[in-house]
């Protein structure tokens, strides 16, 4: 049993997931490398609780798969294929692209806790029900409002 109160994670570093924080090119060949920040758990035996601690790993990214902010999967590479001693991993694939959040269950895009297609639907409905009646210049305001209500009723009936 280790003497410290904080136990390091038992999970190895063969395969890790993290966010890219920095991208540079190394060596004369300018091989792109990504700095990936991965969270690993540390167990505190007194508090009986896991604490998340981040570690930075440098990963080879020969085909420039990832951009800054992307969540990527990295895999350890053997010593012969390491261009530098501290480049210990290689980027396997991009799991989540930055600025493009997708619900993993349904596979639909999400913007700010609403699905993208719901926003699109809302856009279409608002244009149909609210905007178009207001644009009709031959009508008075009250009539336009009445038209809006009629359109709304129609949409309701059509979708029931």
């Amino acid at each position: 049993m280790p003497k410290t109160s904080v136990w390091k994670t038992r999970v190895g570093t063969q395969i890790l997931m993290g966010k890219i924080t920095d991208i540079t090119q190394i060596g004369i060949d300018r091989i792109p490398c990504a700095q990936v920040r991965c969270q690993m758990n540390e167990f505190n035996i007194y508090l009986k609780k896991y604490f998340a601690r981040s570690f930075d790993f440098w990963a080879l990214d020969k085909t420039s798969l990832g951009n800054i902010g992307d969540t990527v999967l990295i895999k350890q590479i053997d010593g012969s294929s390491r261009p530098k001693a501290n480049v210990s991993h290689a980027v396997d694939r991009v799991v989540f692209k930055f600025g493009n959040i997708v619900d993993p269950v349904t596979g639909r895009k999400i913007f700010n806790d609403t699905f993208a297609d719901e926003i699109d639907l809302k856009k279409v409905l608002v244009e149909e029900v609210v905007d178009k009646p207001l644009e009709e210049e031959s009508m008075l305001f009250e009539e336009r409002r009445a038209l809006q209500i009629r359109r709304l009723e129609q949409e309701k009936e059509a979708n029931v």
């Binding site: 930055f98 493009n100 913007f111 700010n112």
Partner: peptide, 9 residues
């Protein structure tokens, strides 16, 4: 906004 929707940003 940039984190959630880069095209809109």
């Amino acid at each position: 906004l940039r984190e959630r929707n880069e095209t809109a940003f």
